[in-house]
Simulated scan of single mutants.
Amino acid sequence: MKQTTPKPDRREYTLMIVPHHGKSVFSIRIPMKYVKYTAVTLGICLTILSGTMLNYRYQANLAAQEKYELNQLRVVNDKQHVELQELSKATADLQQDMNRLNQLDSDLRRIVSSEEIVDTSRSASPRLTNYNGQGGPDIQPNVADLKNLVKELKAAANERENSLLNLKSSLTEKKERLAATPSIWPTNGEVTSRFGWRSSPWGSGRGDWHPGIDIANDMGTPITAAADGTVVNSSWVGGYGNMVEIDHGNGIVTIYGHNSQNLVTPGQQVKKGQLIARMGSTGYSTGPHLHYEIRVNGTAVNPSSFL
């Protein structure tokens, strides 16, 4: 079978330009193949342009997505920054709490004036030794871990503070009770009469009941309060002569008699060891001495049991 060769397309388009005013008509012949080539070229250009536009839209969407993610990361970063600032403030507040606890611990030490309270007030801390072994994985805490840690430390600090406050209150009460308990000698000298029955110093040949102790020394020897309290009497009282009476609370009263001079006034608050009078021989007395007496709920008791 004989193959036929396709004939070339000889068609063409004629573009005619007709001017005004009777000028010559101008025509242009455009072969069909040029029209086809132009159409193909335009198609290719349109295809390339479409691809470019699609790629541009894809890149624009991708950039918008990345911008959105970046903004989200900035929001998260700002939030974490705020949280870290809050944690920093919480840590600073916690440090102030710990400083307050340390001050409270120091106050307790001053109250007891010893190291007996070390194990109580620092029970949460291990004792130091010469060993320094350490270890464990190196893990960086996140914000949640730090927040939990601060929360736990705050709870521990509050619990410790309440415990120390209760202990301080108990120790303060105990100290005040001890300070208000006659427990020191009110003056220096020789004990010439003790509590109880004794031979009469007046030479009557019979014994008498002595409700305190007599301490003899030179005229004017200082006399001090045996405990904290309130002066309820500072005057001349019969056989006691110049007498000072101090109420220490809890039904305890001390009496200091035969003074040459009273140095306090009723209503005055005095501290243990404070100068209140000077030794004398006023009232029923055979010489300079202090008559020291302790009464509990109105009954005289042996002062030696308090010394």
Results as ranks from 00 to 15, higher is better:
residue 23 K to Y: 11
residue 23 K to W: 13
residue 24 S to A: 12
residue 24 S to Y: 07
residue 25 V to G: 05
residue 26 F to R: 10
residue 26 F to M: 06
residue 26 F to Q: 13
residue 27 S to V: 01
residue 27 S to G: 00
residue 27 S to Y: 00
residue 28 I to M: 01
residue 28 I to Q: 03
residue 28 I to K: 04
residue 28 I to F: 02
residue 29 R to V: 00
residue 29 R to Q: 02
residue 31 P to C: 01
residue 31 P to Q: 00
residue 31 P to V: 00
residue 32 M to D: 02
residue 35 V to M: 05
residue 36 K to S: 04
residue 38 T to N: 07
residue 39 A to S: 09
residue 39 A to W: 03
residue 40 V to T: 05
residue 40 V to E: 05
residue 41 T to Q: 07
residue 42 L to W: 08
residue 44 I to M: 07
residue 45 C to H: 06
residue 46 L to H: 05
residue 48 I to E: 04
residue 49 L to W: 05
residue 50 S to K: 04
residue 51 G to D: 03
residue 58 Y to S: 09
residue 58 Y to T: 08
residue 60 A to S: 07
residue 60 A to F: 05
residue 60 A to D: 06
residue 61 N to G: 10
residue 61 N to Q: 13
residue 62 L to A: 07
residue 65 Q to V: 04
residue 65 Q to N: 10
residue 66 E to D: 13
residue 66 E to M: 13
residue 67 K to E: 09
residue 68 Y to F: 12
residue 69 E to Y: 10
residue 70 L to N: 15
residue 70 L to G: 14
residue 70 L to A: 15
residue 72 Q to E: 14
residue 72 Q to H: 15
residue 74 R to H: 15
residue 74 R to I: 15
residue 74 R to M: 14
residue 76 V to W: 13
residue 76 V to G: 12
residue 76 V to D: 15
residue 78 D to W: 07
residue 79 K to S: 15
residue 81 H to A: 15
residue 82 V to E: 13
residue 83 E to Q: 10
residue 83 E to W: 01
residue 84 L to P: 00
residue 84 L to T: 00
residue 85 Q to D: 01
residue 88 S to H: 03
residue 89 K to R: 11
residue 89 K to P: 02
residue 89 K to F: 04
residue 90 A to E: 00
residue 91 T to Q: 04
residue 91 T to V: 03
residue 93 D to A: 03
residue 94 L to P: 01
residue 96 Q to W: 01
residue 97 D to V: 06
residue 97 D to C: 09
residue 101 L to S: 08
residue 104 L to C: 08
residue 105 D to H: 15
residue 105 D to E: 14
residue 108 L to D: 02
residue 108 L to H: 03
residue 108 L to C: 09
residue 109 R to N: 12
residue 110 R to C: 11
residue 111 I to E: 14
residue 111 I to R: 09
residue 113 S to W: 06
residue 114 S to K: 02
residue 118 V to K: 09
residue 118 V to P: 02
residue 119 D to V: 03
residue 119 D to H: 08
residue 120 T to H: 07
residue 120 T to D: 11
residue 120 T to W: 05
residue 120 T to K: 10
residue 121 S to Q: 12
residue 122 R to F: 10
residue 122 R to P: 03
residue 125 S to Y: 11
residue 125 S to V: 14
residue 126 P to R: 03
residue 126 P to K: 01
residue 127 R to D: 10
residue 128 L to G: 13
residue 131 Y to V: 14
residue 131 Y to A: 14
residue 134 Q to W: 13
residue 134 Q to H: 15
residue 135 G to F: 04
residue 138 D to W: 13
residue 138 D to K: 12
